[in-house]
């Protein structure tokens, strides 16, 4: 598990796959075969393929005889799992961390009234420019205080 903390998210290199809650479990059997259970984030997130390859490569390099990767679909990955320190890392990197609970509990047509804290200047004078950003997990925002665009890690 400690070793896996070395694997960064390919798109957000300041946080690891363990911090993101993607790694759900690690087991080693008597033949030194390692089974890693991971859970997918967004259904179509291309980073998942990279995670799998990175995990295999790292563990084989560090003495594992064989590596098996299992996918667990339940419980469903959620941004609620991100710890306070992980959220701070995102903010320091310039990505506003998710602010409320996962999207399933938010009413359908209310998001446009939401105010997100700008990761650059800390003001809430921000507005949504697009629900969809450079990766499936982020939306695009604009801060009217410091006049900078920024990305927001969506609640999931």
């Amino acid at each position: 598990m400690e070793l896996l903390e070395l694997i960064p998210d390919p798109d957000i290199p300041v946080v690891s796959i363990v911090e993101l809650g993607i790694v759900r479990g690690v087991a080693v059997d008597e033949n030194n075969k390692v089974t890693v259970t991971i859970t997918p984030t967004y259904s179509g997130c291309p980073a998942m393929t990279v995670f799998k390859e990175d995990i295999k490569e790292l563990l084989l390099k560090n003495g594992a005889e064989d590596v098996e990767i299992k996918i667990a679909h339940s419980p469903t990955w959620s941004t609620d799992w991100l710890s306070g320190s992980t959220r701070e890392k995102l903010r320091a990197y310039g990505i506003a961390p998710p602010e409320s609970n996962s999207s399933a509990s938010v009413p359908l047509f209310s998001s446009s009234k939401q105010k997100i804290i700008c990761p650059h200047c800390g003001n809430t004078n921000s507005r949504l420019t697009s629900q969809f950003g450079s990766t499936p997990c982020k939306s695009l925002w604009y801060c009217d205080s410091c006049l900078q665009p920024f990305e927001y890690f969506k609640c999931y």
Partner: peptide, 15 residues
């Protein structure tokens, strides 16, 4: 923004 939105939605659906 809409180019990105539609391809993002597409990606979710592929997944």
């Amino acid at each position: 923004e809409e180019d990105l939105a539609m391809t993002n939605i597409s990606l979710d659906l592929f997944g």
